[in-house]
Structures are given as C-alpha cells and as structure tokens.
Design a protein around this nucleic acid. Sequence first.
RNA 1: GCCGACAUAGCUCAGGGGUAGAGCAACUGAUUCGUAAUCAGUAGGUCCUCGGUUCAAUUCCGAGUGUCGGCACCA
Length: 642
Amino acid sequence: MPAITLPDGTVRQFAGTVTGTDIAASIGPGLAKAALAIEIDGKLCDMALPIPEDASIRFVTRKDPEALEMIRHDAAHVLAEAVQTLFPGTQVTIGPSIENGFYYDFYRNEPFTPDDFAAIEAKMKEIVDNKAPFTREVWPRDEAIKFFEDKGERFKAELIRDLPESEDISIYRQGEWLDLCRGPHLRDTSDVGNAFKLMKVAGAYWRGDHRNPMLTRIYGTAWRDRKELEVHLHQLEEAERRDHRRIGREMDLFHIQEEAVGQVFWHPKGWRLYTTLQDYMRRAQTRWGYEEVRTPQLVDRSLWEASGHWDKYRHHMFIATVEDEDKTLALKPMNCPCHVQIFRHGLRSYRELPLRMAEFGACHRYEPSGALHGIMRVRGFTQDDAHVFCTEDQIADETVLFVEMLSAVYRDLGFSDFRVKFADRPEARAGSDEIWDKAEQSLKTACETAGVTYEYNPGEGAFYGPKLEFVLRDAIGRDWQCGTLQVDLVLPERLDASYIGEDSARHRPVMLHRAILGSFERFIGILIEQHAGKFPLWLAPVQVVVASIVSDAGAYAEEVVAALRKAGLHAEADTRNEKINAKIREHSLARVPLILVVGRREAEERTVALRRLGGATQEVLSLDAAVSALKLEATPPDLLEH
RNA sequence: GCCGACAUAGCUCAGGGGUAGAGCAACUGAUUCGUAAUCAGUAGGUCCUCGGUUCAAUUCCGAGUGUCGGCACCA
C-alpha cells in the first residue's frame, strides 16, 4: 500500500506497487500525457519504474531542465540505433547528453563524414516516428558481457566489466535495438521530438586517453522544439560573427602566417589595443605594489634542469644552440626561474617581503599543432606574470590583495562575472606530500580569509603547487580561464631562494605565481569576442573618424583631427571624395565608436556633428566642447576621478 | 600529436583534365553630395608546396605544410 506524496503535499494511497504512469493517469489525462519522467525521492526515474513503497514524487514535463537533458540523451540512443542500422559492423561505445546536445562515439574502420548526416538523420526521424517504448531490463553481469561480446561489441563489454559489482546492469530497449545504459529514459522514441540536428564529426580517444584507439564521434544538437533549435543555430552564427580571427582580419588587428606558426604579427591597430591594455596593467601593478622587471629570453639548460622544467617539459620547449659554443639554451617557457634569479641576487631581508615582482614576460612553448587556435592558443605569447616572494604567514593577505586587484581589473575590462576553481595536486608533481599538504592547506585558509568561494578541480594543479583558477564568463556565456594564483613551496627550494629572517637565520620564502589576464594574446582574443570588436572607447584602436561631407570642409576636418590627437585621442580624417552615407557605412562596419561629421556648416560655425556607433541620432557640439568631452570619455576607467 | 574536412584574386566564395570566374576591396576618371553602398572604367592569380598518372593537371592520385572542427595537451 504505497503512499505517494505529491509536490503540493497531498498524499495518495495505492493498492499495490504502482508506476509513474499509473500515478499520472490517476491524477488526470493532461498530466498522463505531459509527464515524461518521474522524480522519486529526489532521483530521476523512468515513468514505467515500479514504486513498491512510500515515496515523494514529482513529474518531469517537457519544460523542465531534466527533460531537455533526457531528450538529448535519448537522441544519442536514437542516433546509435540509426548508425548501426545503416552501417552494420559499427561498434557502439558511449553517448551522453552534453551542453546544447549530445554525441555518440562509434568504432568503425571507415570514419563517418558529414555527407552521411542526411541519411542518418532520416533514419533517426524514422525511429522517432516509430514511437518505440524505452523499456528497462536488468541483466546478470556475465550474461550481459557474453551478449555484447558475441555481438562483437568489445567496448560495451569492457564497460560492463568495469562497472562496480554493486551496480545493476541495466539494458534499455527501443524496438529491436538495445543498449547498455544507466538511464533514465523518456517514455518512447517519439518523445525525442523533431528538434535535433547532427552537427559535426570528430575523432575522440576511447575513454579520453590518447593511448587508446581513436573513435569517431558524431555530435548533434537537440532541443524541446524547432523554435529552440532555431534560436540555438542563430546563436552559433552570432558566435561565428564574433570570432576573433574574423574580426582581427576585418579590423586589421593582426595576422599569423606559415613562417611563424603560432605567433602573432600585430598590425598597428592591434598593437595599439595591446599597448593600451599593457599600459593599463602596468598602472594596476604599480597601484598594487609590484615592481616590474625584465628577464632574458634565452636561458641555459642548466637553469631549467634545476627548476625541473627540463625534466618535465623539455619536449615543449624551443631549444637553441650555436655552432661555436657547446651550450644548449632554451627560449623561456615561463618566467619564474628567472625571477628567482633576481630574488637571489644578493641577500634578501624579511623586511623586503612580500616582494612582488612583475614582468610582461614573453614566453615560447611548443604547443602541439592541434592545440593552436587563432591568437587564443599560440606558441609565442606574453604573460602578465608576477611572483610574490613572501612568508607562509603572508599568503592569506597576499591572496586577499590579489583577488581585490583581479576583481578591479576584470571589472574595468568589462567582465563582472567570474568563478574560482581550486586545483589540487596532480599525479606528476614535485615536492613531498607533506609540502603539498601544507601548500594546499594554506591556500584554502587564504581563500577563507579572502572570502573566496570555489569549486574543486581535482588533480589539475601545477607540478610545483596547488592553484586557484579564475574563470570569467563572456557576453555570450562562454567561460574562459584567465587568472591564476599558485602557491609554490617547491621552486624556492630547488632554486635555492632564501632570505634572512628576524632571527638572523636563512629561511625559504614562499613563491606565489599569479596572472590576471593570463596572456595578452589570449586575453585580447577574449576581449574581441566579448565586445564583438565594438570596444569601449578607451580600448578602441581608432576612436574617432572625422568625416567631411564636401571637399570645402576637408581642411577643417584635418584641424579637428589635430585637436583630437592633441588631446590624446586616436583620430583619423576621412576627406575622401565619397558620399557621407558611404563614409558612415564604412566606418560603422569598421566598428569605429565615434564619427564626427563636418560639412560647410560645421566648418563655418566651428562645430562637429557627433554620431555614435549604432546610433541613429546626432549631437552638434562646439569643437572645444567635443574635444574635452571625448577626452574625458576616452579616459581609461582606472584614471577617472570618482 | 591523433581523427576528419578544407586550401582558387586583399576578403567572401563559384568553377572545372585543354585561354581562370563573380561580388566586395584596390586603382583611374567623372561627380561635391548632410548621417549605413554615386557612376563608369582599369588592374589583379605559381588555383598552398613537391612528386606521380596523362599528349595535357589548378582539376585525378600520393606525400608534405598550413588552417578549421573535435580529441589529447595546456608548467
């Protein structure tokens, strides 16, 4: 006699074991039709699952987030059935739901191509239209393994073998087809609906390990209805329009070419953006008590051996030799060992700590070819790097200070939203467990002091210490890891850094590695995509174009430009023999934030007609008023008087 | 690095075993115009590189390089 408690608190008694389907039917035909799944005591289950005992339940309908996830998961099953029907001999592996959709990994000698999509999608629609119920069965482990092995499905058999003994081996059937699956699933294949689309094929390693065979993965997107699908496809187009590689070309900011793979040729406008950002960061560093340094690009192998990088990262370092000298040097992949050299040059006193040493450090790393991506992932880049040499007691205060600085910088650059992840010891690491215990504990304490809440990112720390990762979210909801704060008790030891304490004895300092932007290249890529190239005025490479209407106003336009430049603005004159419509269109497409239109009238009255990017209206100002207003408006946020 | 796709004018792209095509941009000329495209003309190419097949390859085949999408990697 199970008593079923509904979300509104009412309790219904049933004569014997019931299912979600029974309960929904007993409540009403509307719900019976709408309920796709049932949550039993907080656990999402199939509608058809028998409920023998008292339980609190809740029905999941198409509008619930869980339903969308199930639609995607079911779509993956439907995809797998379609593929195995059309391409016999293909082995199935796994197919989860993911953000915006699903994928399924197959093993097949011949990989799929997007040309196969039409046929696969057609077959999927057929399967959906068949309205085949998803039914759950629990099989004995040995039987399941034998079944899949006999079918030649060695990946599935391996999955079952690796399931914990305590777990049921559940099999879901949909019509003729079946798959090992934890579930839960929707009622039948028609619940998947018609708002799905196959998107791309890709290679993926079995179980994510590059030593395993390569599978062929088919990605799809799936939604509740066609309208949601359309919105998603539209967002993808929008993201493509924001692509920093495209905007970089359109705005003439930078390029990359074959002779310098993974390295950026900054064009004048891109470099202006870069230096504006660098100037800003330099001011921030000064304000927060950093000293700037500069260290060599090429450093002898012995230093990298001492730091441990040679051992671990040699294959990712650019090595340089000269014919006349028997030496091996490496382009620095990071700055920390060099900063330690400055620290240990001469005796340091505890009075100097915390010592904050910053460098816009140009680094080179031989990134795997497949990792390269525009200017976001490159082989030559510049970090806004710094190392804080301090005592263990100072870690907490330094963390507080750093989080304060990072928040201010992100806010000034237009990012208000960021999360923190705590990455602890990786498998391959330097230093004893004791040291790691200490480093992780002090970083946790520091987070508490700084009021930083974080999520765990297990095993993702640097080889010399745990780290905080600062992940910011851009205008279209994508996450980017930029900032980092790492506690390092290993390198000071390895590179023999010390200071004289109050007790006149030598002590090891702690090293905090930290960056806010990460790398300029990557961060500028993010900035471009965040703003879709429409930068805030202070960052815009061309801030103002003065466009003349008639050639008689040309001289005045030049005069306006000169006045703006004198005030420190990046201004250009457009006195070409073109119609004003054409000029406005062109500079608007070039994402110039401000256009000053000048014709005969403005020249006579010494005024300008100000038009803002995207705006339909204009504002007529005197030249002097315009110059001082724009100068103020173009002031970097950290230099504004509050 | 691995799997797949792609590489044609500055850009976006079409084409195809036998003089290489469009739009935009560029250049020249005319036009002097009031808030998102004035008109006309001209020029522009090792069809990524190297090899093979062929009477003939930019096109077909192979290798390499690069880019793109994933996977793996990201000190």
